[in-house]
Nucleic acid binder design. Structure first.
Length: 261
DNA sequence: ATGTCGTTCGAGGAACGA
């Protein structure tokens, strides 16, 4: 079973790109972030035509997350993280897909730091950690995938010294990410490629992609029951290389158990 | 400090978030 995460940076503005990528990559399940579209403008019919059932949690202008499943309808288990009823930003959706629970998240950027946006990011992280702990306690096969807006280590940044004070790399957020992983989650890409420089995002500015001046901020975390089934992973750079692409590439993993095919 | 996008509002291009 192939599961991917892709920050599309505007689902309607990049619909052609998304459909091309789906046809080419053929993922079984996909987490999408930054839809930048309200619920009523989610292109469900076109995705259905492409063979994907979908659930979504939209928002006008900003944020917005969705989960796609090839040949089936994801069953929503929650929209928004528990413990944050006053959070009006659409950044989390969770659904059951083929016997596993998929949490799709778009963590706050948090810049400028320090400041209220950074505080919001830290609060959001703490809520995520609480929920992630509950998922592990429930013992279900689960995956938490999305745009974390966190580079976990120096290996995940093309120029660590320049990002030291950025909200995506500050010690507080790296520590929170490390605590999340320490709960028992497996960072899939790092598990298979512990030493390799792998990026998933490149700014639009200054030919960052061409220079490979990137960041690894899109992650797929696997619960203990899923981690042993991880067989492969990758970053799809071809879509990022196209004109008018998202600033993120899609990241995918492959799980081997026939139960999940 | 800079640069580049998508989106909104509202009718051209600025503001905002990333």
């Amino acid at each position: 079973m192939k599961i991917a995460t892709f920050n599309v940076n505007g689902i309607n503005g990049r619909l052609g790109l998304l459909l091309d990528w789906l046809a080419e990559a053929q993922p079984d399940a996909v987490c999408l972030q930054e839809l930048k579209a309200p619920d009523e403008k989610f292109p469900a019919a076109l995705l259905e035509k492409a063979g994907y059932g979908a659930v979504w949690h939209g928002q006008k202008s900003w944020n917005g997350v969705a989960i796609l499943a090839r040949g089936s309808e994801p069953v929503v288990t929650r929209r928004g993280l528990p413990g944050s009823p006053d959070d009006d930003q659409s950044r989390y959706i969770e659904a059951a897909v083929r016997g596993m629970l998929i949490g799709c998240l778009y963590l706050p950027n948090g810049n400028p730091a320090p400041g209220p946006k950074f505080d919001y990011k830290l609060r959001w992280l703490e809520n995520l950690l609480l929920h992630a702990q509950d998922l592990l306690a429930a013992g279900v096969p689960a995956i938490l995938a999305g745009d974390y807006n966190v580079m976990p280590t120096e290996l995940d940044v093309y120029a660590p010294e320049r990002w030291r004070d950025d909200a995506l790399f500050r010690p507080e957020v790296r520590a929170a990410y490390a605590r999340l992983v320490d709960q028992g989650w497996t960072d899939a890409v790092r598990q298979l490629h512990p030493e390799e420089r792998i990026y998933t995002f490149w700014k639009y500015w200054r030919n960052a992609f061409e220079r490979d001046a990137g960041l690894r901020i899109d992650h797929l975390l696997l619960s203990p029951s899923l981690a042993p089934h991880l067989t492969a992973c990758g970053v799809d750079r071809t879509a990022r290389a196209r004109d008018h692409s998202s600033d993120h590439a899609a990241v995918w993993i492959e799980l081997d158990d026939p139960i999940w095919r």
